[in-house]
Design a protein around this nucleic acid. Structure first.
Lengths: 169, 169
DNA sequence: ATATTATAGATATTAGATATCCATAATAAT
DNA sequence: ATTATTATGGATATCTAATATCTATAATAT
């Protein structure tokens, strides 16, 4: 039950792309694309491996990629339109966190029998695994939080850390 | 990012132990211990593997185990004192869901420099990875939900499914 | 004492995550 | 058009964790 390193890499890469768009920084010119070399050096991850991750992000429309001289990556949407959930699902896949692998067991048959004594199809969806149901609820909670937090969330935190007086309520 | 099958098995096993304590059921006598054979047959999981899982649950004080004739397992606490989080942490371990593996990277050094321009140790905890910070928040949310849901939660759901009229508001 | 049941250790198998290399395709600059 | 540069996709290798089984041992009720 851990997020993979790839997810970590992806999130940091996107943060770097977002920061690269901001003019004030050391690199004078504003919106220059970021090549895999620069990303690799900044994050301390091999180019080969990072490439795969960036490709996935491109296939899912999170970043744009331009090959050739002065090519590289840039965010395909505004930073506040890239949620943590988006990124996680691209890298980790979209299967649920929990899957009841004993649905065919005697336990479920017994519980189901009692429930469906009289009416067979009156209340659909009521025959699912009750443990699964709790876990689905947990996943729903988690997803909501991850949808509410975006790359922009991190940018805001960063600028606030930079000068804490600026956004004084 | 998936819970292991072992977690699924553990939760179902505990539900079975909880149901075994309730008198009315098919097995006339009330609080008989449940052996690994019965558990294995009910869940459709091999005895060998299930044993390991039950051992872990015992080591963590979730169930009690009695060897010998008529031995078996029973819940070590009330069903409402066994949270989903308890079970998950026994099986999956207690490491965090997310670990920033690039904390030593140039990216973090740069972000940290800006933040700690003047005061060095005035605000502790402010130098952590900002992405990690968001993920910790997600984990906190998830854990809260999992602490609020117990084996008893499932029992209640089950009895409500059994006769929907009983607990009319 | 004996049959029964859980426990712990060793080990095998599988699947997924992590990582690298190389050939190819696309693009900008000349 | 040619060339240098950069991303892409395929193949493959390695490592780790999850899954699973077997066997010998310890503990307990009868």
């Amino acid at each position: 039950m851990q997020f993979s390193k790839s997810t970590d890499y992806a999130l940091h890469a996107l943060l770097h792309l977002a920061l690269a768009k901001i003019p004030h920084n050391g690199n004078g010119h504003k919106g220059h694309n970021v090549g895999i070399k620069e990303l690799s050096a900044t994050l301390g991850v091999s180019e080969s491996y990072l490439s795969k991750i960036m490709s996935k992000l491109r296939q899912d429309g999170i970043v744009r990629a331009v090959p050739g001289v002065n090519g590289g990556y840039e965010l395909a949407r505004q930073a506040d339109q890239i949620t943590f959930l988006d990124v996680i699902q691209v890298i980790e896949g979209r299967q649920g966190m929990f899957e009841c692998s004993t649905s065919e067991s005697r336990q479920h048959r017994l519980l189901a029998e009692e429930g469906t004594a009289s009416t067979e199809q009156e209340s659909p969806g009521k025959n699912g695994c009750l443990i699964e149901k709790v876990m689905f609820g947990a996943e729903r909670q988690l997803h909501q939080y991850l949808r509410e937090h975006t790359i922009q969330t991190v940018l805001n935190e960063a600028s606030e850390r930079c000068n804490p007086e600026a956004n004084k309520k």
